[in-house]
């Protein structure tokens, strides 16, 4: 009994440690532009995990779980994928008119168990969990984590198909179109957990360009009873939007990069 309690505490400590380290570093997709016109359109996107926004100074984001979705909902194949020391990059030709979504969705599992009197720990992609964690291990503790990192870009007129929620995990509700954001205007967004409003969760909105100012200028907002919140964008620039929530006992994190244009 005492042992189990210690083990549980250890696993909580581990979870907190991992959660904290994940929080300190910020994952993001940074597009070359979010608004496109004309007939020869390509977007190039940087993908990285960093301390400050939006600088390449920590580690590149892995692109194994990248999905590119065209305005009609079809899946595109990103081109020129590269992972360097600090960032990954990929390009997509925007052949269709409308709004595109790029998303990196990671599902991971953390587990601890006892083997021959020793505590074993494992953390990795959810897909490998069954293979790596002995199903009948003693004192097995398992917890899941999911992470969804998104960015939207629009060629021509903004469309809404890629904004439709799937009803799974932590998802953004974009009442204001994410490619129609202007300085001095308020944007209304929300969050869903498994398709239901995520009430009273904390949302962080942080502008990029940290190197050129002392003040973080970060906003901490709360979703209302309907899971909605309003962001007063006062200045133009790239913003990092993040929220975390509990989804079926697992920790889920959502990130979107938003571009706010000057009037």
């Amino acid at each position: 009994m005492m042992f189990a309690k210690t083990n549980f505490l250890k696993s909580v400590t581990l979870a907190v440690a991992l959660a904290t380290s994940a929080h300190a570093h910020r994952a993001w997709l940074l597009p070359s532009a979010t608004v496109f016109s004309g007939d020869d359109k390509w977007v190039t996107i940087d993908a990285a995990i960093s301390n400050d926004l939006f600088y390449f100074e920590h580690v590149p984001m892995r692109l194994e779980n990248l999905t590119a979705i065209a305005p009609d909902g079809s899946v595109l194949k990103p081109q020129f994928l590269n992972t360097g020391k600090y960032r990954s990059t990929f390009d997509v030709e925007l052949e269709k008119s409308g709004t595109y979504k790029f998303a990196v969705v990671n599902q991971s599992v953390m587990a601890s168990w006892e083997e021959n009197g020793e505590t074993k720990r494992w953390r990795g992609p959810a897909a490998n969990a069954d293979k790596e964690i002995p199903a009948n291990a003693a004192k097995l503790q398992k917890s899941g984590m999911s992470q969804r990192i998104e960015v939207f870009v629009t060629a021509g007129k903004p469309t809404r198909k890629v904004l439709e929620p799937t009803g799974k995990g932590l998802e953004l509700v974009a009442e204001t179109h994410p490619n129609d954001l202007f300085a001095g205007e308020k944007a209304k967004f929300g969050f869903l957990v498994d398709g239901k409003p995520a009430a009273n969760i904390t949302v962080t909105v942080a502008p990029g360009g940290k190197r050129y100012r002392d003040n973080l200028k970060e906003l901490q907002l709360k979703t209302d009873a309907d899971g909605m919140f309003t962001v007063p964008f006062t200045e133009a620039g790239m913003y990092w939007l993040n929220a975390t929530a509990n989804v079926g006992g697992s920790r889920a994190s959502y990130v979107a990069t938003l571009e706010v244009l000057p009037q």
Binding site: V35, S37, G38, D39, D40, K157, D180, L261
Partner: peptide, 22 residues
């Protein structure tokens, strides 16, 4: 070297938002 210069129409950003993108 291009079919047209429509690539930069979005730089007229208020017009693009109000009408151009339609």
């Amino acid at each position: 070297g291009r079919k047209s210069g429509t690539t930069w129409l979005k730089d007229l950003r208020q017009w693009w938002r109000k009408s151009g993108r339609e």
